[in-house]
Amino acid sequence: MTDEIRRILRENARLSTDVDALSNDADLYQAGMTSHASVNVMLALEDAFDVEFPDSMLKRSVFESIAAIEAAVSELQGSVAA
């Protein structure tokens, strides 16, 4: 999943640094992701993982790092399976 998230970030987050140079915990906003770009990241994540982020998860902290995104997507996929 991490690779897919990295691909989505590479295509949508418009970071000023190379995604591959970032650790899973690196702050994406500090790496240059704007709130506008984060909307595109969310749309791409919903599409790629076939999930929908509920409004309660549409907040800055959920998208601030690769690890946080992965946790959020896993949680959503888990809730569908259950």
Binding site: S35, H36, V39, M42, L43, F53, P54, D55, L58
Partner: peptide, 9 residues
């Protein structure tokens, strides 16, 4: 306009 693309409620 950007937020509305993704907000649900």
């Amino acid at each position: 306009a950007g937020l509305l693309l993704i907000a649900k409620e």
